[in-house]
């Protein structure tokens, strides 16, 4: 029988916690939507339908549309190698995969400028061939890939490690080929965590600011993603416009939170089923 803290204490602590969250977390979220709709619904739609805004949305979707599938394939490959096999250097590999998390967004952009920028390693080589990476779309895509690099792998690796290799072995003894093994046995077992990893990856890809800001060149209508467009509008004191676009990103964040809530139970099941199989029962 868990001891209950006294009522006064409970109310006090709960109130304090809720107040803190209300001021620091809920209020900013609310402010986004309030400011977006301040000048009315018409102004809201105008801001979003503005050609530069639409271009920024398109570019955001493009960057995410390339970065996420690539990191998805990488996440699957890395998780397969790490979780189902034994080899030296495995822990090192896992740590290296986490590196992008530890790097500040601005530096994430900087490194690509150093490689592909005008003064960079490959700068002269690229400009000779008329290929623009920095201050153009390819640079944005690269920076986006970098900052969302670990998301899928981080969801899959612990799960696949916990699931072990027995089902795959069983499938192989029954005669399955490598492809059948992957599609019919492995993939269904990880589908929820995979989905969640993709959602996290996409949300971060669309919301990235610092890294993309460095490589972008801020050319309106061409090399601005949604976050960058928000910055431009805000710096021009077009608050309603800035918050209108920002509200779309905030909605995206809310979708991510809802998805997490919905998938959490299913994801935990993927771990739990495995443990349940081990307990002796009649």
């Amino acid at each position: 029988m868990k001891r209950q803290d006294p009522l006064l204490l409970r109310c006090g602590l709960t109130a304090a916690a809720l107040l803190f969250l209300a001021v620091f977390v809920a209020l900013p979220l609310f402010a986004v939507f309030a400011q977006a709709l301040e000048k009315g619904l018409a102004a809201y739609w105008t801001a979003i339908a503005d050609p530069d805004a639409l271009a920024s949305i398109r570019l955001t979707l493009l960057a995410a549309g390339i970065a996420v599938p690539m990191n998805l394939v990488f996440g699957l490959a890395a998780a397969w190698a790490i979780a189902k096999f034994q080899f030296p250097g495995k822990n090192l590999l896992i740590t290296l995969i986490d590196l992008p998390f530890a790097v500040s967004p601005v530096i994430s952009g900087l490194i690509y400028v150093l490689m592909f920028g005008a003064q960079g390693w490959l700068g002269p080589w690229l400009s000779d061939r008329g290929i623009k990476i920095i201050f153009a779309v390819p640079g944005i895509v690269l920076a986006t890939i970098f900052v969302t690099f670990p998301f899928v792998a981080r969801e899959l690796i612990p799960l696949m490690q916990a699931q072990g290799t027995e089902e795959e072995e069983a499938a192989l003894v029954l005669g399955a080929s490598g492809r059948q093994l992957f599609w019919r046995v492995t993939l269904p077992n990880i589908k929820w965590s995979l989905l969640y990893g993709v959602i996290l990856c996409s949300a971060r890809a669309m919301g990235e600011f610092g890294a993309v800001s460095v490589v972008s060149g801020h050319i309106r209508g061409e090399t601005n993603t949604m976050p960058l467009h928000v910055e431009i509008l805000y710096n021009e004191y077009n608050f309603a416009g800035a918050f209108a676009v920002a509200s779309l990103l905030a909605l995206l964040a809310l979708v991510t939170l809802v998805a997490k809530r919905l998938l959490e139970r299913k994801m935990r099941q993927d771990y739990a089923d495995f443990k349940a199989a081990e307990s002796a029962e009649g």
Binding site: E167, A170, L172, R184, F274
Partner: peptide, 20 residues
């Protein structure tokens, strides 16, 4: 290859395909 040997294997922890 194990798949070509036509043997049946029963694992200690069953190894049933949990999503089927």
């Amino acid at each position: 290859r194990t798949g070509d040997r036509r043997v049946g294997f029963v694992f200690q922890h069953y190894a049933l395909f949990r999503n089927m």
